[in-house]
Design a protein around this nucleic acid. Structure first.
Length: 821
RNA sequence: GGGCGAGUGGCGGAACUGGUAUACGCGACGGACUUAAAAUCCGUUGGCUGAAUAAGCCUUGAGGGUUCGAGUCCCUCCUUGCCCACCA
């Protein structure tokens, strides 16, 4: 008997699939389309581990299942290959990012290939290919044309020793990661995309997509829409006016002080001429640095300093002191906030610095209200709280008069309503080499001029040294042939922009490129894009929950507005898989040295099919689990049992005449279970059903030794049901059973309801909810019949003797419960 | 601090709209085959009491509640994971 040897048969079938191109997708309109996509990976130097593999195994199972169900499946793969690691590696080793990426892609691709994923490799794309980033640049120009790209000065981390801009992750405890020198902030002119113009639509359209509530909530929080009011008031002893923001404006009569963000651009002007000017500015500077480097500052540690200025409150609360507070954000509202006792942080801040407080909002509970009055607790319930001021609203419930208060403040011209968003415009400038160059030419006469479309792509020149320029610009600034150019408008001498784009720009449209990957006239053909998109199943980890998904949605909406496509949301269904952790429960990472690569398992002889099965069987697809080496042996054993069963069947060469109804029923029940599980992505239970079916088949075999006529069909169906998970072994056995065409293009089996019915049922007898007996009954038995038999049961008898049956609950074919008193 | 999840045997986990908790797999134990081991195959396997594959009691993070019946629904609490974060 031939032994199951994945090492031999897996490469054989991988080659066969490649040659026959069975996974290539075409715009065949006779079948329903299905676009299955995983986020295109970053081909890092660290190899792919079993955590990554899970992502692709889930996608592949979905793709294969739908293909067999007669769908026209697009399942592509590509590379998101721009980014910092390749550039750092280049600085360290001198190996150009281009070479490093090419090497990594080759390795990654080999690893994916040996797992037998059904990608349409003819559509492979790479974001660092000029043919690709040409169109990324084209989209930059589109955004620019539509007024959505602009330049603004912005602060960046700067290492004065290395003379280079640092990314957030390169700052460690306020020090440069390379030289350990203290970092500072440097103002640079940078490019932004105006995503804030789309904030409302990005928030609203979340209602229409089939994503998990958790991701939707994350995006909504990130966009952070809130309605507030802006008050304008004079600053005492100056001729300045300030605009203060309040989101808790219902209780505006409680406002007793104002806080300004330490990094607010208005601050120097505000404190100019005060006695404490220098002291205050120093303090603000320190605070900004601390906040930037540490991120979160504990609520207990709120800090602040009095600016020395007061403002005359426009709504009659008198003179309000202006403080700098560590928790105030310059980009939220106006960056200057009106504060009161009715906010947790304001409350804590005021207590710490003994700032006057005055409650005007109270809970209905008298005792609690007393505590609020005595400033013992902070009360913030703007929904249910009862207002005492202003007089017009005395006794009203805040949540019910919100609109009226807005109207009141606006009618009296005391404030104006303002919607504020937490989301900020997307900073896309990177002072880096390894990214798509921003297609802009700076002319002293004409300013920032877009590169004409016919001159795209602005190609990255090959460099010898990847060290930064030293003046804050990217290494591209060192290359005169790149920088020096002529202005497209006036023809005069001009310089190219040396910033490159954030990698998220490349990934904001790649899903469209897959629809038409080789188009050299356009980013994509409209018809092709609309044939395949939107993406039906987008599979990925939660790490992209906000940034990537938001940016991609933003670009899609811009394209919609431009008329390039007629849909506004790129991803219909989002599927977030759980993480695979190392056996010790920690995240797998190269630095921790606890990664497990599929290569090792394959060379141990398990094969890709076992690994794939293990990835899915280990637990629910959307939950995190610890990888278990022992478990792989279990699924390998299962595959071996399937292999052996088919070999034994083939060797007996039997072809019986009598159908085994037992086999038929088992087959249809398994079809039903596996199909249902796959619809709900219950991969682990689908595989469990297949294991159960196989165990049953062994039992039937022990009885009839393959005598039944329908053994062949039964085995073939089993292979088909297993095919989306274990594509190699099933393809091999399918062929051994005499099939000419691939199992992966065969038609997914359909169950027949009539075989799901059983003629017998086990009925549980409960006395007061406790199980006391089991009854074997013919299916569909009536209550009386069951009750009579239950009463006759010897064990049941002992419980109902001398007692009254007060009530009987009967669930057909399942259970009878006797309530006994 | 905000948001979203999760707590079930020695372990990963299963359980449809409330209806036999522990499917499937791992591990462990016993047996068959073998000179032996590995591999394979066949059993057993939540805990306690019992000689028992008789019967009973207990058991889904803790405590209450609703119900004939709760892993599942409601309330209070505890633990833990992930994402984001000084967002008023």
């Amino acid at each position: 008997m031939k032994r199951y040897n994945p090492k031999e048969l897996e490469p054989k079938w991988q080659k066969s699939w490649e040659d026959s191109k069975i996974y290539q997708a075409t715009e065949d309109k006779t079948k329903p389309k299905r676009y299955v996509l995983e986020y295109f990976p970053y081909p890092s130097g660290a190899a792919m581990h079993v955590g990554h593999v899970r992502n692709y195994t889930i996608g592949d199972a979905i793709a294969r299942y739908n293909r067999m169900r007669g769908h026209n499946v697009l399942y592509p793969m590509g590379w998101d290959a721009f980014g910092l690691p390749a550039e750092n590696y280049a600085i360290k080793t001198g190996v150009s990012p281009k070479e490093a990426v090419a090497k990594n892609v080759t390795h990654f691709k080999k690893q994916l290939m040996q797992m037998g994923f059904s990608y349409d490799w003819s559509r492979e794309i790479n974001s660092t290919d000029p043919e690709y980033y040409k169109w990324t640049q084209w989209f930059f120009l589109l955004l620019h044309k539509r007024g959505l790209a602009y330049q603004k000065e912005s602060l960046q981390w700067w290492c004065p020793h290395d003379k280079t801009v640092l990314a957030n992750e390169q700052v460690e405890n306020g020090k440069c990661w390379r030289c350990g020198h203290e970092v500072e902030k440097k103002a640079l002119e940078q490019w932004f995309f105006k995503i804030t113009d789309y904030a409302d639509r990005l928030a609203k359209d979340l209602d229409d997509v089939n994503w998990s509530e958790s991701i939707k909530t994350m995006q909504r929080n990130w966009i952070g829409k809130s309605n507030g009011m802006v008050f304008t008031s004079p600053v005492k002893n100056t001729d300045l006016l300030i605009q203060t923001f309040s989101a808790h404006f219902e209780a505006f009569r409680a406002d007793t002080f104002v806080v300004i963000a330490p990094d607010h651009p208005f601050l120097p002007e505000l404190v100019k001429g005060t006695k404490t000017e220098k002291e205050v500015l120093d303090f603000a500077d320190k605070m900004t640095k601390k906040r930037d480097s540490e991120g979160y500052v504990d609520e207990e540690d709120v800090e602040g300093i009095f600016t020395g200025r007061y403002t005359e409150d426009p709504v009659g609360n008198g003179e309000l002191p202006i403080w700098i507070a560590s928790y105030a954000l310059s980009h939220y509202g106006t960056g200057i906030v009106k504060c009161s006792v009715h906010d947790e942080r304001d409350f804590r801040f005021a207590k710490k610095y003994n700032i006057k407080l005055k409650p005007v909002l109270f809970p209905s509970d008298k005792k609690e209200a007393e505590k609020v009055k005595n400033l013992e607790i902070c009360y913030t319930d703007m929904q249910n709280g009862v207002l005492t001021e202003p007089k017009e609203f005395n006794g009203k419930i805040a949540g019910q008069v919100r609109e009226e208060i807005v109207k009141y403040l606006e009618d009296e011209q005391l404030a104006t309503a303002q919607t504020s968003y937490k989301i900020r415009d997307w900073l896309i400038s990177r002072q880096r080499y390894w990214g798509a160059p921003i297609p802009i030419i700076h002319c002293t006469k004409d300013g920032a001029v877009p590169v004409p479309e016919d001159q795209l792509p602005v190609e990255l020149p090959d460099l010898k040294s990847f060290e930064p320029s030293g003046d804050g610009r990217s290494p591209l600034a060192n290359v005169p042939e790149f920088v020096d150019t002529t202005c497209p408008k006036c023809g005069g001498k001009a310089e190219r922009e040396t910033d490159t784009m954030d990698g998220f720009a490349c990934s904001s449209w790649y899903f469209l490129r897959f629809a038409d990957p080789n188009n050299d006239k356009k980013a994509f053909d409209k018809d092709k894009a609309e044939f395949w998109l939107p993406v039906d199943d987008y599979i990925g980890g939660a790490e992209h929950a906000v940034m990537h998904l938001l940016y991609a949605r933003f670009w899609t909406k811009v394209m919609f507005d431009e008329g390039l496509i007629s849909f506004e949301e790129p991803f219909t269904t989002l599927r977030n898989h759980g993480m695979i952790l190392a056996p010790d429960g920690q995240k797998m990472s190269k630095s921790k040295g606890n990664t497990i690569e599929p290569d090792g398992l394959i060379s141990q002889g398990y094969g890709a099919d076992s690994i794939r099965l293990m990835e899915l069987f280990i637990g629910p697809w959307n939950q995190s689990v610890n990888w278990s080496i022992e478990g792989v042996g279990g699924v390998f054993r299962f595959l071996q049992r399937v292999w052996t069963l088919v070999q034994e069947y083939l060797e007996t060469g039997k072809n019986g005449v009598k159908e085994s109804i037992e086999l038929t029923k088992l087959t249809h029940q398994t079809i039903y279970k596996v199909s249902k599980d796959l619809e709900n992505l219950g991969f682990n239970t689908a595989i469990a059903s297949l294991m159960e079916a196989t165990n049953e088949l062994y039992k039937v075999k022990a009885k009839d030794d393959f005598a039944a006529k329908n053994w062949k069909d039964t085995l073939k169906t089993l292979l088909q049901l297993l095919a989306p998970f274990a594509p190699h072994i099933t393809e091999e056995l399918w062929e051994q059973m005499g099939e000419k065409d691939s199992i992966h293009t065969s038609k997914w089996p359909v169950h027949d309801e009539k075989y799901l019915k059983t003629d017998k049922s086990t009925i549980v007898v409960q006395i007061n909810g406790k199980v006391r007996a089991n009854l074997e009954m013919t299916a569909g038995s009536g209550e009386d019949e069951v009750l009579t038999k239950a009463k006759a049961d010897s064990n049941v008898k002992t419980y109902i003797e001398n007692k009254k049956i007060a009530k009987t609950i009967y669930i057909k074919d399942k259970l009878i419960n006797l309530v006994v008193k």
